[in-house]
Amino acid sequence: MNKRVSEGIWGYAFILPQLTGLLIFAFIPLVSAFVLSLMKWDGFGKKQFIGLDNFVTQFHNPDFKLALFNTAWYTLLVVPTGIVLAILVAVALNKVRGKVVYRLFYYMPVVTSSIAVSIVWLWLLNSEFGIINVYLKQWFGIVGPEWLTNRKLVIPSIAMLSVWWGLGGNMVLFLAGLQGISSSYYEAAQIDGASRFRQFWHITLPLLSPTTFFATIMSIIGSFQVFDQSFVMTGGGPAKASYTIVYHIYQLAFVEFTFGKSAAAAVILFGIILTLTLLQMYMSKRWVHYGG
Rank of each mutant, 00 (worst) to 15 (best):
L175C: 06
L175R: 03
A176Q: 09
G177P: 05
L178E: 05
Q179F: 15
Q179H: 13
G180C: 10
G180N: 13
G180W: 04
I181F: 04
S182F: 03
S182Y: 11
S183N: 13
Y185C: 09
Y185R: 02
Y185M: 13
Y185H: 14
Y185G: 13
Y185P: 08
Y186D: 00
A188E: 12
A188I: 12
A189W: 01
Q190G: 15
Q190K: 14
I191K: 10
D192V: 13
D192F: 11
D192M: 12
G193T: 12
S195D: 08
F197P: 10
R198I: 14
F200V: 09
F200T: 07
F200Y: 08
F200W: 06
F200C: 08
W201C: 14
W201K: 14
H202K: 04
I203F: 02
T204F: 08
T204E: 02
L205G: 05
L205I: 09
L205D: 01
L205R: 03
P206T: 12
L207T: 10
L207E: 04
L207Y: 02
L208E: 00
L208F: 01
S209F: 03
S209L: 09
P210Q: 04
P210K: 03
T211Q: 02
T211K: 00
T212F: 06
T212E: 02
F213A: 01
F214Q: 06
A215T: 13
A215Y: 00
T216I: 08
I217V: 14
M218L: 12
M218G: 12
M218E: 02
S219H: 07
S219L: 07
S219I: 08
I220T: 10
I221Y: 06
G222V: 01
G222S: 12
G222P: 03
G222W: 07
S223E: 08
S223G: 10
F224C: 05
F227C: 03
F227A: 07
D228Q: 05
D228A: 10
D228V: 15
S230C: 10
S230M: 11
F231W: 11
F231G: 03
F231V: 08
F231S: 11
F231K: 07
F231I: 03
M233D: 04
G235E: 11
G236P: 00
G236E: 03
G236M: 07
G237L: 10
P238L: 05
P238A: 05
A239S: 15
K240G: 14
A241G: 07
A241S: 15
A241D: 00
A241I: 06
A241C: 13
S242I: 12
Y243T: 11
Y243E: 07
Y243S: 02
T244I: 15
I245Y: 01
I245L: 12
I245D: 04
V246D: 04
V246R: 00
V246Q: 01
Y247W: 11
Y247A: 08
H248W: 03
H248I: 09
Y250P: 07
Q251K: 15
Q251N: 15
L252A: 11
A253G: 14
F254V: 03
F254M: 02
F254E: 02
E256T: 08
E256S: 14
F257M: 10
S262A: 15
S262M: 05
S262V: 04
S262P: 11
A264E: 01
A264I: 00
A265L: 05
A265H: 00
A266S: 15
A266I: 07
V267I: 13
L269Q: 01
L269F: 08
F270I: 14
G271W: 04
I272R: 00
I272H: 01
I273G: 05
